[in-house]
Amino acid sequence: MFKKLRKVKELPLIIVLVVISIFIAIVNPSFLTVENFLDLLKSNLVLAMMALGMLLILLTGGIDVSAASVITAVNVILGQTLMHVTQNILFAIVVACAAGIIMGLINGLLISMLKIPPIVATLGTMSMILGIVLYTTNGNWITGIPQNFIDFGRIVILPRTLADGRVIGIPIQVVFLIPIIVLTWFVLRHTVIGRGIYAMGGNIESAERMGFKTKRIIIFVYSLEGFIIGLSAVAHTSIMRQVDPNAFLGFEMQVIAAVVLGGASTLGGYGSVLGTLIGVSIFSVINNGMILMRIPTFWQKIAVGLIIISSISVDMIQKQKEEKMKVCVDVEGEELYAV
């Protein structure tokens, strides 16, 4: 049992999460309440979904800096659809996903067919998508989302009434999060294309020699990420009940940071769904803790930056140490190392 636990690569991350949580709980016991937990869930659900999408991208060795502008664009499209086309929620969800997929597809095509490096391609689409969004909205909020959608967003599962009369429960938006978790896990773990994502992140030439169509994998991955972003937009809009074209400014950095914190490598091939979820959790717990400890919001950015740099630095230093200790020669008279 213990041995098996040791094999879990995410163990150090789990420990970090637990330690931080304990620290915050000691400073402010309200951290450990069900209410706070539900708040945490609700406010970080979108981050978690987007992070899972980004994980797919990072695994292939790519990066998507347009993610935040894509979700903004889908938010706008979703809002406009609900207000001007139909109030049918299901239809709106389909539209949102389709919009996400199309934008992801464009990224995927640019990267796979035109061989544009992912960071440059997505920087380009980011600029274009955000430009179009800001042009059409003029940077103004979209309010007046139909009541039925707002009501939908307010649904709680397993409601419970508190002493002060408020009703708390699991936010309805988990119906987006949980399928996405299951979907990414299933794709990555149990489908051939999912293993191909890891394979091409590990060694793209070998993956091609093995028969993986890496171009198709790239297109698939960016489209799937687009789909996930589409659903994230639905979740986000149903929580916020309005669309702020500037809400996601710089959000892509947070998403990437959370995924990297969860053990994924930007060079591809390494990372897991569990790790990413823990990365997101660490992130949200720290943010939440800072709020609970009344630390000004500006500090959060500093914390985020420091966390990204220090966590990767520690990782790198560890690797360099291992590299130095590596046994190259089975030297006579030295104790044998099992290889």
Partner: peptide, 25 residues
């Protein structure tokens, strides 16, 4: 042409699945 990030198991057998056009592992 192996994959350092995958297990021995997958390195040996993944190609078979690709070759046969299988969708699931």
């Amino acid at each position: 042409s192996l994959f350092p990030n995958l297990s021995v198991l997958e390195n040996i057998t993944l190609g078979r699945f690709v070759k046969r056009g299988r969708k699931l592992v």
